[in-house]
Amino acid sequence: MMNTTEVGAAPKAPPVKVEERLFQNRYLVDAGRPHIKIKPHAEPSKALMALTHLCPAGCYSLNDKGQVEAVVDGCVECGTCRVLTAKTGEVEWNYPRGGFGVLFKFG
């Protein structure tokens, strides 16, 4: 699903895979109804590009056409991508339907 590894990590640390972390979490995925969509774009803005490393769940990645894609099954609903792209309006963000999405056991 996600493929993000750390870019400029501390020299000693091996690449960090976020998938291994998300795997611990519980989700109720609203299949076929993603709550976050990226508007079609030819070239991503700087803010949208930043999400490929900034999203704490690694939901954003760059495809081979140079566009940013999102797979939001692992989204922890922090809202960072919404705030960062509020100016450019490239991300359409809504809460998942009531009851769906991440379910924190501890928080």
């Binding site: 870019v7 400029g8 972390r21 490393h53 900034l54 704490p56 690694g58």
Partner: peptide, 21 residues
């Protein structure tokens, strides 16, 4: 701060991992 993260190129989980190490 989110704008700092955006500029830094760091991932939040990479930063946490380094802190843990």
């Amino acid at each position: 701060i989110v704008s700092d993260f955006a500029e830094s190129g760091r991932t939040p989980y990479g930063l946490l991992e380094a802190f843990k190490r």
